[in-house]
């Protein structure tokens, strides 16, 4: 790890002020991706602006029509939250299978979204639920947030403060894990808003994306057979040691089918 200067602001304003002064600085949320990258010297920020002391970023509010989760809420807290489990059980169970127990105790929603790892779980839920990403400056629709590989709509120094998830009628997430990293080779989040269905896919492309054919078919009839025969195009999907684009395309269909089955239970 290269040397850096460490800052621990106690509120959002201080954090933003620091970020505006430190061009090569990075916000430090849970650190589960950033500290790893720094250890391997793949990332070398001059400054770390640690958000851990900012209480405002740790709120979690579950209401009947929306769940709003602060950027610094840990995965384990989302998984265990009775409010989230009641309102959007699929979101709680997704949070409960991110990484491993230890990672879930540190990793945060905001950190995950800002990092936008192509195989992270949360982006699938954000897209499928049509969530709104709230920053210090504005509100960003899910569909406009994920821009590409590790790339988001966030501007320099812009800080995610919370994410608001509309409550669907039913939803489920299915993940096919990479045997080594345990990230998603393919993860599919299906959300039924009653007549309107959104399908978010992670792990398969440079960043999470929606699957329009499946959304249309499921809107017509929310049942596993609606997606079972949909052949996803392999073009543009990720290719690595563990899964070819063709295999990923196939898994999108399988995971979508299983997610629909789970949502209907």
């Amino acid at each position: 790890m290269h040397a850096f200067d460490y800052h621990r602001p106690s509120n959002v304003k201080e954090a933003l002020a620091l970020a505006s002064r430190k061009d090569e600085g990075r916000y430090l949320a849970g650190g589960q991706s950033l500290v790893q990258a720094m250890k391997l010297r793949l990332s070398s920020p001059t400054d770390l602006i640690d958000l851990n002391a900012i209480g405002d970023l740790k709120a979690l509010k579950a209401e009947s029509d929306a769940v709003t989760i602060g950027a610094m809420v840990r995965h384990a807290e989302v998984a265990a939250s009775s409010g989230v489990r009641k309102a959007i059980p699929a979101l709680a169970s997704l949070a409960g299978i991110i990484g491993d127990r230890q990672v879930r105790h540190m990793g945060t929603l905001g950190g995950s979204l800002a990092n936008n790892d192509p195989a992270a779980d949360y982006p699938a839920a954000v897209l499928a639920l049509g969530a709104t990403i709230v920053t210090d400056k504005r509100k960003i629709e899910a569909d406009k947030f994920f821009k590409g590989l590790y790339e988001t709509a966030l501007g320099p120094g812009e800080l995610i403060t919370a994410v608001s998830f509309p409550v669907p009628k039913r939803a489920a997430y299915m993940k096919f894990k990479n045997p080594a990293s345990r990230f998603a080779i393919v993860g599919v989040f299906v959300a039924d808003f009653g007549g309107k269905v959104r399908v978010g896919v992670t792990g398969a492309g440079p960043c999470a994306f929606r699957q329009a054919d499946m959304e249309k078919a499921l809107a017509a009839k929310f049942a596993p057979e609606s997606v079972a025969s949909i052949k996803v195009k392999a073009d543009g999907l990720n290719s690595d040691l563990h899964a070819s684009p063709e295999y990923r395309a196939h898994l999108i269909t399988v995971m979508a089918k299983r997610a629909v089955e789970a949502a209907m239970k």
């Binding site: 640690d50 851990n52 105790h105």
Partner: peptide
């Protein structure tokens, strides 16, 4: 850390302040 299992290789010491 505060009763919860974490990986001490994955955070800087200051995160445990």
């Amino acid at each position: 850390m505060n009763g919860k299992a974490i990986k001490s290789c994955s955070i800087v010491a200051m995160q445990a302040e």
